[in-house]
Structure formats: structure tokens, C-alpha cells
Design a protein around this nucleic acid. Structure first.
Lengths: 209, 209
DNA sequence: TAATATTGAAACGCAACGTAGCGTTTTATA
DNA sequence: TATAAAACGCTACGTTGCGTTTCAATATTA
């Protein structure tokens, strides 16, 4: 996206001018309309022209903010991701892992985010700019969460030393996305349970079960 | 795709008629040209019209076989996958796992298949028809391989009982595709090694390391 | 009020889509 | 050899959506 912080009226902490507020209002309308269209007919049939028509915002105005349809869709994704709260601590690491996995599974199967991800993944994989934005925000955020979780678990003596947080992230999330994108196998809580149950021995310091 | 076995001139084992041979010839030209175009400028800029132009095969002829660009790309993918040989047995299960993972990693990073997958994944996730074809061929094939591997390993006493082959497949391949599609982290042999090393304790009967 | 920023409206050229109709070439059959 | 059937080539068409441009209108600020 061209301006990551245009929606909130400028850089964090700055007082928004009237011009910025105006910008933010139209941007909100565009994002909401786009989300509605995505929910209705999916990513494949999302067009800038339709967003313009439905939102009442001129096509040229939309193009002033988003270079492409993908740019716009990614903005919606990031916008929605802002609502996702960070994970609370739990008594033991296995519970924390289960919560992390279950949240992702739930997000991908019971909200718009799953559909958006499905439609956007090819563009993220191909478009360098898009990929950069996605990684710097979403991927980085996930890795940070997992890093904290791993450090906590290691300090507790539950996890083995020297675990690579990046690899752990791959192991936790990869299977979820694999089902979402390719295999089509069910994405439900039972899967989340099995996933963590299967993985925990690989992470645990004392692999008793 | 509309006809999965049109390229080889009919159902396996049947003697090909002249008409079928002719069909097969043009189909081969189309597939080869498409692969070249994919190698050259990627999936995003693949168009039926360009394939027609470059191959000398009329647009209408192409449309008589493939309903869409995605249909055609998937055909190329399946065509290329035909060359991938099945895995040989190895002394121990860990070696077999490493080979399986390394082959996939190599395929996705050092051949056209990676780029095709990147471009096609969104369509596979969205298009029901396409997804069905992909699952019935590629996914099913992988699961079959893993199933055989797991059974062998269990019989050897190396793997724990009751492993779910589908889940094992998710765990082995998910992280690879996650890197290919989203995280952008390197896809190399070192990664394959770490992946199997990290996962093996989760599969092994006696998790000594 | 004057200057500036943001938006709206309309029109444009372009690329590719997917379809249709019809004639041509190749293969099979009588 | 004549004829049918299958596959293919060619051209033209209407449609969609792209992304850009130009200019007028509106809202904010000084």
C-alpha cells in the first residue's frame, strides 16, 4: 500500500487536520465497501469499478490511494487484522500453543480473512511490493508472538533449548494454510488439537507425551 | 481440466486413433508453449491469446480444451508432475523423510513448479472444479506416498503406532508451502534438514533424538 | 475572500476475455 | 474414390475492467 497510516489520519500521535479527517472518512467508506463486496461475492469478482460504484467514491479517488485491486484487498486484510487481539498468557506452554493455533484456525475458517487470504495468496507470492508489506506486518507479528511464547516456555523449562522461533512458526501455521489453500481438508478445532498434540513432543524438553 | 487423459491420446491402454493422435500433438504444442511462457514471464502475464500466438494453435482450439487460463496452467502442472519419479526405499525412515522433503523443496525452489504453484494457488483455493482435480491428483498422490512411508516405518518399529498419514503430510509439506507462499523465508536444503530434524521426534516411537 | 487539498465526473485507449460462425485440413469409413 | 466425421484455423464481435487523464466542484485552511 502506498500510505499505511492514511486511515487513522496520519502518523500515530499527530493531531489530525481537517484535510486528514476528510481523507480518513472516504478511506473508511472504501474499506468497508470493499469488505462487504469480498464477503458477498469473494475476491475473484472484486473490481475497483464496483467498489467505486457501491461506495459512491470516485474511481479516480480510489486509484489515488491504492495502486491496484491487490493493494486494496491487502489494506482490508490489515484493517481487519487490527481487531485481532494479542494472546493472553496461560499456565502451561501447551495451552498457549493450542490457543495460538485455534485462534488462527478459527480466523481462517469462520471469518472473511480466510477467503481474503485464499484470494490474495497468489498475489502476495508474486508481487514483491505486496509481499514486503505482508511480511513486515502479518508475518513479523506472528513470529514475534511465537518468539515470546518460545522464550517463556524455555524459561519455564517446558521447551527444549535452542528452538528456532521461525521454524516453530512454520510448523504451527504451515499445516493450517496448507489445508486452507491446497488440501481442502477440514479446518476445525479437532484439527487444531491434533496439530498441537502431534507437534508438542517435537518442542518439549522432556518428551514424555 | 475437461479431459484429463487427452494428452496421451485416450484412456490408458487403449490404442490411439488418428484423430486422437492429432489431438495429442496439438495439445503437446500448447502445453510446451505454455510452459515456456510461464518460465519466461511468469503466471501473471500468461494469457490464452499469447499462447495461441506463440504456439500457432488457434485461440478457439485452445478454448475447446481448456475452459480458462487456470485450467491450462493446471494442465501444465500435472504434465510436469508426471515426470516426477516416486521415491525409492531407504534404510531408515528418517532418511526417507528427508528425501521426501528435500525433493519437494527442490521442486518448489529450483523448477518452474514453484512459480506455477504460486500463481495457481489462489485459483485452486477458490475454484471448486480446479480444486477437485488438484486434490484428486496431486494431493492424493502425496498422501499415498506418505501413507506407504508411515506404514513401512511403523512396521520397522521406528515410528509410533497410530500416526495419521494426512496429518503427517500436513506437517511435512505445510511448512514448505508456507515459505513458498507467504513468509518468503529461504527454501533450501538446510531448511529441509531442520524441518525433518524438528519433526522426527514427533513421529518416532522412541524419541531419543 | 483567496489559496490549498481533496474529491467527483466523464471520457479515453488498451488488453484480454470468451463466443460465434464458417471454411479448411486431416482422418476414418463405406 | 466419395463422403462423413473430427479437429483445427481464422476473423470478427461485444464485453469487461484496467489504469490514466482532464477539468470542474467541494471542503478546509489561512
Amino acid at each position: 500500500m502506498q500510505k499505511a497510516d492514511a486511515a487513522d489520519g496520519g502518523p500515530a500521535g499527530a493531531t489530525a487536520s481537517g484535510h486528514q479527517k476528510r481523507r480518513a472518512r472516504t478511506e473508511r467508506v472504501v474499506l468497508d465497501t470493499t469488505r462487504e463486496l469480498l464477503a458477498g461475492s469473494g475476491f475473484a469478482s472484486l473490481t475497483i469499478e464496483r467498489v467505486a460504484e457501491r461506495s459512491g467514491v470516485a474511481k479516480s479517488t480510489i486509484y489515488r490511494r491504492y495502486r491496484s485491486r491487490n493493494d486494496l484487498a491487502l489494506a482490508v486484510l490489515l484493517d481487519m487484522l487490527g481487531d485481532v487481539s494479542t494472546l493472553p498468557y496461560a499456565k502451561d506452554t501447551q495451552t498457549e500453543l493450542t490457543r495460538l493455533v485455534n485462534r488462527t484456525v478459527d480466523l481462517m475458517s469462520n471469518s472473511l480473512l480466510g477467503r481474503i487470504m485464499q484470494g490474495l495468496v497468489s498475489e502476495v507470492a508474486a508481487d514483491v511490493e505486496l509481499a514486503r508489506t505482508y511480511r513486515e506486518t502479518v508475518v513479523a507479528k506472528r513470529v514475534r508472538e511465537v518468539t515470546a511464547l518460545v522464550e517463556r516456555g524455555t524459561a519455564r523449562g517446558e521447551l527444549r533449548e535452542g528452538l528456532d522461533p521461525e521454524l516453530v512458526t512454520d510448523l504451527l501455521l504451515g499445516p493450517i494454510y496448507y489445508r486452507l489453500f491446497l488440501s481442502g481438508e477440514p479446518l476445525d478445532e479437532a484439527f487444531g488439537q491434533s496439530l498441537v498434540a502431534a507437534l508438542y513432543p517435537a518442542f518439549a524438553k522432556d518428551p514424555q507425551g
